[in-house]
């Protein structure tokens, strides 16, 4: 099945119906395995058990960027190839990406509490993730600002690509800003190099979360396609019956009521 075949939303929906249960099962198995391995992993000699938050935090941080990458490709699909499913993919991915980014922030801040003594430190990495989160929210706001999804699609695609180009610049600027100000914190996120005992559960968790994203994304795309169908059905319904009402019938009701 090629990308062109998938351009037909009906065929895509059929594919999703077959694929979704399998994706869900794979995700569940991988997540279970990942969590089990994470639980088995030894405590860090410096950070203690808090290090295990990393097994959740790092996959979320990875996905926060990966999803923007997916959305950028989808945006190219909207602007360059005009693939009909591209803007569906981009729109469906944004809230999921925002959720992963939020979880990355949340877990980062929970990890930071015992490390820094505060829930938030303007650490270069966390700050970059926070800016990414703001960009996700802006993108969602843009999608929500316009009722007609096809009209919003182009604006959102341009914004996504501009964001993709800007992200490295933002990352660099924030790093520079952070070193310039010599923050008080001694310990940084993911500072020490990773031991093998941590690497394997981390990798499994990363893959599990990526599958989680795929599952959610495919389901969200299906919902978005269905939502658009409902919308066009409603528009057809609005158009359909209005001429059925004969003036005579209407006047009969009025005369009785006035």
């Amino acid at each position: 099945m090629t990308l062109i075949d998938l351009a037909n939303p009906t065929r895509f929906l059929a594919l999703v119906a077959r694929l979704l249960p399998w994706l869900a099962v794979v995700t569940a198995v991988l997540l279970a395995a990942g969590l089990y391995l994470s639980a088995l992993a030894p405590d860090d000699y410096q950070q203690g058990a808090t290090v295990k938050i990393m097994f959740i935090h790092v996959p979320n941080a990875w996905l926060s960027m990966f999803v923007w990458g997916i959305m950028s490709v989808a945006s190219l699909g909207t602007l360059v190839w005009r693939h009909p499913l591209a803007d569906v993919a981009a729109k469906a991915a944004a809230p999921i990406g925002a959720s992963f980014t939020f979880l990355a922030l949340l877990t980062g801040s929970l990890w930071g509490r015992p490390m820094w003594g505060t829930y938030w430190e303007w650490d270069a990495r966390l700050t970059s993730v926070l800016i990414l989160f703001l960009m996700y929210l802006g993108l969602i706001a843009l999608w929500r600002a316009v009722e007609d999804p096809t009209r919003a699609a182009r604006a959102a695609a341009v914004l996504t690509l501009v964001g993709a180009i800007n992200l490295p610049i933002i990352k660099f600027s924030v790093d520079w800003w952070n070193t310039l100000h010599q923050p008080a914190s001694v310990m940084r996120m993911g500072g020490p190099t990773l031991d093998k005992a941590f690497l394997i559960p981390l990798l499994v968790m990363a893959i599990a979360f990526t599958f989680l994203f795929l599952t959610l994304h495919v389901a969200a795309m299906r919902n978005e396609i269905l939502r658009r169908r409902v919308r066009s059905l409603q528009m057809m319904q609005a158009r359909s019956v209005s001429s059925d009402v004969s003036p005579g019938g209407a006047s009969g009701q009025i005369a009785g009521a006035v």
Binding site: E147, Q237, S240, A250
Partner: peptide, 14 residues
């Protein structure tokens, strides 16, 4: 119903 919009009552005015 009198103005012939009974079928559209639940639809967005847009």
């Amino acid at each position: 119903a009198a103005v012939g919009l009974a079928h559209a009552a639940e639809l967005p005015a847009a």
